[in-house]
Design a binder for these strands. Structure first.
Length: 632
RNA sequence: GGGCCCGUAGCCCAGCACGGAUUAGGGCGUCAGCCUCCGAAGCUGAAGAGCGCGAGCGCAGAUACCAUGGGUUCGAAUCCCAUCGGGCCCGCCA
């Protein structure tokens, strides 16, 4: 987008000035000025040069500015260079030209999406154990991962979204225990989703029963063994149940706007033989060794040379531990092993129309080009950091530098506020309580969305008395999704989100609905006009109000926000951008008349600005998976 | 014992990645305003970041201010070290 071009011009000006004034190689950096009245872009190079050459920063700035003023005339967007007495160089934008170009680009459909990079990226996210409904902690994972997928695609990467299903773990096995050995029905009661039924009524129940009757716990290992074997009546039954749970979970995922390209199954990774191959290689390379003494005697371990500790990877009974299932998956992703899988269409329609595939061990097609990515990103909560590090270390030992291509996007958990946890019937000592699926302490996404939707519905109905119920329903759904996604995305991933049910129901202030409202406001202007959005250099020059200029400038920074999001694997940069753009638009809206403007050329230019900025807002919302409506 | 993360107004957060220009921004809440004017899910203003008390004032203000104390620097909310408080991880569970 055009702001980046302006930046480049400024960087070149500065670099040339440094060279011609004999300052030598200086790292040119430009950034946003601290506030208005300091131009549109600033550079502190003069401070650095002053230090190097022991001159006063103001003098350096003055010299450089006078050098650049002449050259600036040859640029497209740099209107002027102003030295500041503190030693900064401030550059101002030629707004007429800039507005004309920026708005023109966007109206022609150029929203800053980048050309293909050729980089193949896998993003693994969601990964909910198939034994319960998604709770709001899972939603944080999904929102982060799904938004990241969108952002990276916008940045030109070839991205596949992966969802890993742990269908051979104890959490899932416990559901089978409940169904098979506690005699619980394998149909959910009317009105209850199957995933919620399994999580809320079976899994928690089985956990309680384990405490009461120790014999039952043996059934868990029986189920695990049968599942691992992969054949027989119990295994077939488990397969059927996992499919039902997954289908219910995916409904929620899709409702949240996520979509996936591939489902990976833990059971298939185990059966694929990848681990045996990798294990063999690790043995011959001496990365793992058979411990002969101490408490790990009889186990294959990875020694940590720094701490002297060991991580067991194969138990003394010969079975592989959890990380040993993660290692082949990771190696498969970045192409350190051959692709043993075949692929089949999973057969359900996703919201964005993308085809969802599933791995199979036989009966599918080969060579779907999922494995062997340049970069693999795993969105997994911070508690798995240690294990992810071990995985990365093993990858490095298989292939020098491999861990640079295997990235863990960690994020902190979602906890429940004291008030919310207590309302669920739990006693809380501190300020908040960690969720626990086992204990039944969590807030399901579907439940939360239902509450949000009801609140949104009441508000929407109040404002639109003559609309149909279907319309109100659609809008309320969009508001509910936006509220939840924005809430989970806007906060720093390193910080725990303390979720408070009341607080989260807010539809005002810095929320998702603010974005929808702003978009609808903008579209309203375009609906109500007789004019046509159009712009040329002459009409662009008539837009001189600070609110107009701020809006144009902000709008042209979407690509910069997305780049930052991609660089730091942090899509909330886009959420922040969307919010800032919405603020800029509302400021414009309150202070600048569009349809009442008497000068038709200026009116049309403003219409063009409204059209363009609303398109950018919509695009930024799409990147973070927030739906928008022309009216709400 | 080892490691990771967090600590910014009553509450929640942004700013920290690359140290700089100032009133350290925003939301919630509180108080006061704005719909004969393109949608009030919006916007504007005030109070709120140190100390004291009769809670509104007073004291500060070459400046005090981002948990506390040091350090680096011409310059620190931002970098480094230590300390305190909170959370998490370190299993032949997954």
């Amino acid at each position: 987008m055009r702001f980046r071009e302006f930046e480049k011009e400024v960087e070149e000006l500065v670099a040339r000035a440094c060279a011609s004034l004999g300052y030598g190689e200086v790292e040119v950096e430009v950034g946003p000025p601290p506030g208005e009245g300091y131009g549109d872009l600033s550079s502190a190079v003069s401070l650095r040069i002053a230090k190097k050459t022991s001159q006063s920063p103001a003098d350096v700035a003055l010299k450089m500015a006078s050098k650049m003023t002449e050259e600036a005339k040859g640029t497209r967007y740099v209107a002027g260079v102003v030295p500041h007495r503190a030693g900064y160089l401030n550059f101002t934008l030629d707004y007429a030209r800039f507005s004309c170009d920026s708005i023109g680009d966007i109206l022609r459909g150029d929203l800053g999406a980048m050309p293909k990079t050729g980089r193949k990226v896998l993003v693994e996210h969601t990964n909910v154990n198939p034994n319960k409904a998604l709770h709001i902690g899972h939603a944080r994972n999904l929102v982060l991962g799904d938004s990241l997928v969108n952002v990276l695609r916008y940045l030109g990467d070839d991205v596949r979204a992966l969802n890993y299903i742990d269908d051979s773990g104890s959490q899932f096995a416990d559901v089978i225990v409940g169904l098979k050995f506690l005699g619980l029905p394998d149909e959910a009661p009317a009105g209850v989703k199957f995933d919620a039924y399994c999580g809320d009524r079976i899994y928690t129940r089985v956990t309680q029963e384990y405490a009461k009757s120790p014999g039952l716990k043996e059934k868990e290992s029986l189920v695990l063994r049968e599942i691992e074997k992969g054949e027989g009546e119990l295994a077939e039954y488990a397969k059927k149940i996992v499919g039902k749970i997954l289908a219910a979970q995916l409904e929620t995922c899709w409702r949240l706007g996520a979509s996936y390209d591939l489902l990976n199954w833990e059971s298939q990774i185990v059966h694929s033989g990848m681990w045996d191959e990798i294990f063999g290689r690790l043995k011959s390379m001496g990365v793992v060794k058979l411990e002969s003494q101490g408490e790990n005697a009889g186990c294959w371990v990875i020694p940590d040379t720094e701490t002297g500790e060991q991580k067991v990877v194969v138990r003394s009974d010969g079975t592989a531990v959890y990380v040993a299932k993660d290692i082949p998956y990771a190696a498969w992703k970045i192409g350190l092993v051959g692709d043993p899988f075949e692929y089949q269409v999973y057969g359900a329609k996703q919201p964005d129309g993308a085809v969802l595939n599933s791995t199979v061990l036989s009966g599918g097609v080969k060579g779907m080009d999922f494995s062997g990515a340049d970069i693999a990103i795993s969105v997994i909560d911070v508690r798995q950091g240690y294990l992810q590090k071990i995985v990365a270390k093993v990858l490095d030992s298989m292939n020098e530098g491999a861990s640079k291509r295997y990235l863990h996007r960690a994020y902190e958990v979602v906890a429940l506020s004291k008030a919310t946890a207590e309302r669920l019937g739990f006693e809380v000592e501190g300020e908040f309580a960690h969720m626990s699926g086992r204990a039944g302490l969590y807030v399901n996404v579907d439940t939360m969305l239902a509450s949000l939707k009801e609140r949104a519905r009441a508000e929407t109905r109040k404002r639109s008395l003559s609309e149909t119920d279907a319309w109100v329903d659609d809008v309320s759904e969009a508001l509910a999704i936006s509220a939840l996604r924005y809430e989970l995305l806007k906060q720093d991933p390193d910080k725990i989100i303390v979720f408070d049910a009341d607080e989260a129901l807010r539809l005002q202030g810095d929320t998702g609905p603010y974005l929808l409202y702003t978009y609808a406001r903008a579209r309203r202007i375009l609906d109500k006009t007789d004019g046509r959005p159009s712009i040329d250099l002459g009409s662009a020059a008539k837009m001189t109000k600070p609110q107009e200029l701020r809006l144009v400038k902000r709008m042209s920074m979407l690509d910069a926000a997305a780049s930052k999001a991609g660089e730091y694997l942090s899509p909330r940069e886009v959420a922040k951008f969307a919010h800032e753009l919405a603020v800029a638009f509302n400021d414009f809206y309150e202070n600048v008349q569009v349809n009442k403007e008497a000068d038709p050329a200026l009116r049309d230019a403003r219409l063009a600005l409204v059209d363009a900025s609303s398109k950018v807002l919509a695009k930024s919302m799409t990147l973070i998976g927030i739906p928008y409506r022309t009216r709400i």
